[in-house]
């Protein structure tokens, strides 16, 4: 009974942390994108608009929840639950410091990849059940994109598993106490970052919700709190892939002088800012370019990277 009570407490803490993180990420993105375009961004609510997100959350809470008449009702209602839960489940294993980890599973990497790929199902459910042409197109594109980029993503993680000799995220971080794996796997890191950007549907890989042609993509028919869940999950997924990149390649919470969680957040937020930088620098890819980039670019490259890493491992490992 006691471990379950502790788990209950931990999961409530995680939820509170995730809510704050998402709000901060959305605020950060609005500010960063505004400054990229020589604007100020939110300025009215609170100091430099710092309370804007709380105002937005309250506004969305008061919005009417619309379920279109033509929609497949039960699938439509389940999709936002699944999309949030799949993003939230990943935080079970991500180590913020040697002690700040909810539960260190010995199959951590596989677990994270498994639960985050449930997002595909939720997106397909949302796109299909809305019975809307834009939503269907957005959902199908999202699925094609996410499943395609999942392969280079996993292939770029496998050399890290090889180097660490473990699937547990905490053990992988500990294995990097002399130097981070990015020094051995620079190409792997690049491949991971590019496929992860595509995994979370961010520009330049954001054709599933290309606003100039599909309006909003798979979440077009959602309103109020259900829309919040999609938005929430999108930002959480972005944070998850950055946290994973920091854990797998940049040494996670390891670092001199500063306390462990500070290092973790410094590395993760650095990557988050890189993703935001990419968003406001690169134009969106067309779907054929997007698929070519994955199947003819990233996939062969990541296979080559894997073979070379394995060869290195056999001779010097």
């Amino acid at each position: 009974m006691i471990p379950l009570a502790i788990m209950l407490f931990k999961s409530v803490v995680v939820l509170a942390f995730l809510a704050v993180t998402t709000m901060f990420l959305v605020y950060l993105e609005r500010k960063v994108s505004a400054h990229f375009q020589v604007r100020y961004g939110p300025m009215r609510v609170g100091w430099h608009g710092s309370l804007q997100l709380i105002a937005d959350a309250l506004k969305l809470l008061m919005k009417e929840d619309i379920i279109p008449k033509m929609a497949d009702k039960w699938v439509f209602l389940t999709a936002p639950v699944l999309v949030f839960v799949s993003a939230y489940l990943a935080y079970l294993v991500i180590p913020f410091s040697p002690f700040l980890v909810v539960k260190d599973l010995n199959v951590g990497v596989l677990y994270v990849l498994g639960v985050t790929s449930l997002t595909v199902l939720a997106i397909l459910m949302a796109g299909w059940s809305s019975n809307n042409k834009y939503a269907l197109l957005g959902g199908l594109r999202a699925v094609a994109q996410i499943i395609s980029y999942e392969i280079p993503l996993i292939l770029s993680i496998i050399p890290v598993i090889m180097l660490a000799g473990s699937l547990s995220l905490s053990r992988i971080v500990e294995a990097q106490h002399t130097f981070p794996f990015i020094l051995l796997q620079p190409l792997g890191f690049l491949l991971y970052l590019l496929s992860a950007t595509a995994e979370v549907n961010r520009t330049p890989f954001d054709i599933p919700e290309a606003e100039s042609e599909l309006v909003a993509g798979y979440n077009i028919e959602y309103s109020g709190m259900r829309f919040v869940m999609f938005f929430f999950a999108e930002y959480l997924n972005m944070f998850t892939v950055c946290a994973l990149a920091a854990t797998l390649f940049l040494g996670g919470w390891q670092g001199p002088l500063l306390p462990a969680p500070v290092w973790f957040f410094l590395k993760t937020y650095f990557l988050v800012l890189v993703l935001m930088w990419m968003r406001w620098t690169l134009p969106r890819l067309r779907i054929d370019q997007l698929m070519d980039f994955c199947w003819k670019g990233l996939l062969p490259l990541s296979l080559v990277n894997l073979i070379l890493s394995a060869l290195w491992m056999v001779f010097y490992g």
Binding site: M7, L8, K10, S11, V12, V14, L15, L60, L61, M62, K63, D65, P80, V81, F84, V85, Y88, L89, L92, V102, K103, G224, M225, R226, V228, M229
Partner: peptide, 16 residues
Amino acid sequence: YLIVGIIFVLGAFAAS
């Protein structure tokens, strides 16, 4: 852990 997450989402829907 899973059930707390689901309750959070359903609670948000109930509030709205």
